[in-house]
């Protein structure tokens, strides 16, 4: 406090330098995103050269079924992948926090391995594996485009949800569950009425983060997707070779808005659960 009182009148050069640097880096971080958003209002043949302002690219989206289908595939995949990751991750997170033991370290090790493995390795490993399951073993389920995408997108998300749920429950004592058991609630009832509500903020945040992760997944999707169910980032990737048109910027802008809505909800859920800015940064900064 006294520090602030004495320093208040003059600002040291280092503080000014920090402010300038911080603002410059923020501008740097937003530059390409702003460029894409502005480009989506470009009326012209190519994305890079500005012609004039208009909404043509957004209207073109409506006329092009290929992009519409790609977005729809992404939304479906994102929803199912998030559901799968949330169920698996929530159960695993609860198990880790309520039944600690040596196995937890093994499991955390596996999750760590999943989350640090470069995506390209996951991608090139899943492609032959899906072919093996679907064609060599004849399980035609794995030839389905959406199933493949859901599996590929859920791997990292399972790890994220498990971390989040474990972190949330480790911080809270198991007293409530014990009380519930002492009051003759069945394990299932205790789970539904006590454990799950305690973990709920983490479960919701995990679901939304998984949804955005899946929506934006490009590398794994590019390898496992089959023609007929192309998610939107893969569509954009292929458009990269045939020339970028303003529609690509328009669809990117729409997906950005969707992602921002999901993120806003995550922040809202965590804020309501009483997290500080640092807690939220930790949660959303990749575990």
């Amino acid at each position: 406090m006294s520090d602030r009182l004495t320093r208040r009148p003059r600002r040291s050069w280092s503080d000014v330098a920090f402010n300038v640097w911080g603002v410059l880096v923020m501008l740097f971080l937003f530059a390409p995103i702003l460029v894409i958003i502005v480009s989506s209002f470009n009326v012209g043949r190519l994305l890079v050269s500005w012609d004039h302002f208009g909404f043509d690219s957004f209207l073109a989206l409506l006329a092009k079924p290929a992009i519409r289908d790609a977005v729809w595939i992404s939304v479906q995949t994102g929803f199912i992948a998030a559901l799968v990751a949330t169920v698996l991750g929530t159960l695993a997170g609860i198990a880790m926090s309520r039944n600690p033991g040596k196995w937890v370290w093994w499991f955390l090790g596996l999750l760590l391995l999943v989350s640090v493995t470069p995506e390209i390795v996951d991608a090139v490993a899943l492609l032959p594996w899906m072919v093996f399951l679907g064609q060599d073993l004849g399980m035609s389920l794995f030839n389905d485009g959406i199933v493949r995408l859901v599996i590929g997108h859920s791997l990292f998300s399972v790890a994220v949800v498990s971390y989040l749920v474990r972190a949330r429950l480790v911080g809270q004592e198991a007293n409530l569950e014990e009380a519930s058991a002492d009051l003759y609630a069945t394990p299932v009832r205790t789970f539904r009425k006590v454990t799950l509500p305690l973990a709920m903020p983490a479960v919701l945040a995990g679901f939304l983060l998984s949804f955005t992760l899946s929506l934006d997944n490009t590398v794994i999707a590019a390898f496992v997707s089959v023609s007929g169910s192309t998610p939107w980032p893969v569509y954009v990737l292929s458009a990269l070779r045939s020339g970028l048109r303003p529609e690509i910027a328009a669809v990117s802008t729409i997906m950005l808005v969707l992602t921002l809505i999901a993120l806003g909800l995550v922040a809202y859920v965590l804020r309501r659960a009483g997290d500080s800015a640092a807690d939220i940064a930790r949660t959303m900064g990749g575990g």
Partner: peptide, 29 residues
């Protein structure tokens, strides 16, 4: 500030990179 760093982090990787391609393009603005 955390939110401001978070937005680029969660924006699609490919889209952000294409943004740079547009900025750095020899015919760009």
């Amino acid at each position: 500030l955390v939110a401001l760093v978070m937005v680029p982090f969660w924006t699609n990787f490919l889209v952000r990179t294409i943004g740079w391609q547009v900025i750095l393009s020899p015919d760009g603005w």
